[in-house]
Design a protein around this nucleic acid. Structure first.
Length: 477
RNA sequence: GGCGGUAUAGCCAAGUGGUAAGGCAGAGGACUGCAAAUCCUUUACCCCCAGUUCGAAUCUGGGUGCCGCCUCCA
């Protein structure tokens, strides 16, 4: 089947058809770099990284853009608290973001633009919106005029009256309508500012995404993603701005994708509620692969509840995947031989069948939970085949390894424990201890044998005795 | 109040009208010196009520619970 995605614009699953055949323009909202990001933030970073990988696996040339918001109220506030400048704060947390994202196996975007490096583009975008009659200047501020934009509310499916009923009305408001939102904010004392046709000031929250996405991806892009809470107002505003600026009648985005929330104790995890766990802390507590597994084990649009049990279950799942890989590697070293009784073609057909099921799951609105179910079917197929055949041909090993590697390239949940392929001082020492243990076992000195096994276990090395000898692997970390 | 999501085994979770994938945990067994890994066996009145249908976890209506957005938030 071809790829179908649930488009929040239509609230329907739609066949994915890119604007340019074979290419995908993909914009994903990135972090505001005023602090470490938390596990809830990590969800979109991980799941949309996997979607990006899947698109590439399917042969699309993907241009993936994820911004850094490095100027806004939170940045200013935090920089003030820390007694450093806003750029210093941004520099620090961009580095921290990249450290955590790398640890979580999130691939770097093709472009990671920063708002403050695109002030000219932002100003230019605002000028176009004003010129097209959809924004007005008010005492150094510039506001988007939502009354001039009949489509407003089409993404979040709200009508203007309902939105206005909930809108905040502030004293001293310079807006014409409570729903109008700032494109440009006039300078306040002590805040960073840039020159503009409307005086010194800084960009509003939403405009950077409009300006930067059109710069790097064009005025009409294929996919835009983010958390479901960004649907309103952020994405609604972005769409209004971008389309008002381009004035070409084309939609800003063809497919809007929003991930469901990560909950903690069945409540939304957010910085403002204070119930958050930073990704940094989570990585220290749980194996990054387990965090990925956890995020991908539910459909991206469903809420997931972050619990220690859930993460332990995910870690156990990752272990099963890696055990399969390391058992396969070990068998490839010890049991590779011709086997007339083994029907390699039947096996390859079964692998192919599972591959198709995996593809179908991924193409069905990017259903990683179902796809991981298929991955476990592959593991089961490999395990039973290893169990039932003492000798297996080279083709079995290359095909099985290739399959696991391919799935891991997409999902990134298996990783490598490299074990005996390592050749350094430590592995030499481990091999030496294993040899000693083998001798001890031969002479029925089980006390010494268990002592060695426990010693290595305490160092994160697990031994397994097989008919082909003792194999070792590293514990999941 | 408006909009939206969700309810499947002890836990997590997939599920396209045709008698419920997968993972984790548990129990029993095989294998092992003991383990570990793996394999075998075993575990579901699909929130409730009504309806449509030959047939519904899946569709419709009505409940109930939980969550989110409408305000900075992934």
């Amino acid at each position: 089947m071809s790829l179908e995605l649930f488009n929040d614009l239509t609230r329907k699953k739609e066949v994915f058809t890119p604007i340019k055949e074979g290419q995908v323009s993909f914009y994903s909202c990135g972090p505001t770099v005023y602090d470490y990001f938390h596990v809830g933030n990590a969800r979109p970073f991980i799941v949309f990284d996997v979607l990006r990988r899947w698109l590439e696996h399917e042969g699309y040339k993907v241009t993936f853009v994820q911004n850094f918001t490095d100027i806004d109220d939170k940045m200013i506030h935090r920089a003030h608290q820390e007694k450093i400048t806003v750029p210093e704060l941004a520099e620090r947390f961009i580095a921290e973001y990249q450290k955590d994202a790398d640890a979580l196996g999130i691939r770097r975007p093709d472009v990671a633009p920063r708002a403050t490096e695109h002030i000219d583009e932002i100003i230019h975008t605002i000028e176009k919106i004003i010129a097209n009659g959809h924004a007005y200047v008010s005492d150094g501020d510039v506001y988007f005029d939502i009354k001039s934009w009949p489509k407003y509310g089409s993404l979040c499916k709200q009508n203007l009256e309902d939105l206005e009923a909930g809108a905040r009305i502030e004293p001293g408001e310079k807006k014409k309508d409570p729903l109008d939102f700032a494109l440009w904010k006039a300078e306040k004392p002590g805040e960073p500012s840039w020159e503009s046709p409307w005086g010194k000031g800084r960009p509003g929250w939403h405009i950077e995404c409009s300006a930067m996405s059109s710069k790097y991806l064009g005025e009409n892009i294929d996919i835009h993603s983010g958390g479901v809470d960004l649907m309103f107002p952020h994405h609604e505003n972005e769409a209004a701005q971008s389309e008002a600026a381009s004035g070409n009648g084309k939609p800003f985005v063809n497919y809007w994708l929003h991930n469901g929330f990560l909950l903690i104790d069945s409540e939304k995890m957010s910085k403002s509620l204070g119930n958050f766990l930073t990704a940094r802390a989570a990585i220290e507590k749980y194996p990054p692969l387990a965090l990925r597994f956890f995020m991908l084990s539910a459909h991206y649009r469903s809420p997931i509840n972050f619990t220690p049990e859930g993460l332990e279950q995910a870690a156990a799942g990752v272990s099963r995947l890696r055990n399969c890989k390391s058992d396969l590697d070990f068998a490839a070293r010890t049991r590779k031989d011709n086997n007339a009784d083994f029907d390699i073609n039947k096996y390859l057909d079964e692998l192919k069948e599972l591959h198709k099921k995996f593809s179908d799951a991924m193409n069905d609105d990017f259903n990683t939970a179902a796809a991981m179910g298929i991955l476990f079917d592959v593991v089961y197929l490999i395990n039973t085949t290893l169990k039932e055949n003492e000798k297996l041909p080279e083709e079995f090993f290359t095909a099985s390894k290739k399959a696991l590697d391919e799935y891991d390239e997409i999902l990134g949940v298996i990783g490598s424990d490299d074990a005996e392929t390592e050749h350094d001082d430590e592995s030499a020492e481990i091999e030496k201890l294993i040899k000693e243990r083998t001798e001890a076992r031969k002479s029925k000195n089980f006390a010494r044998s268990d002592e060695i096994r426990n010693l290595l276990k305490s160092r994160g090395i697990v031994l397994e005795d097989t008919p082909q000898g003792t194999k070792w692997k590293r514990e999941l970390a």
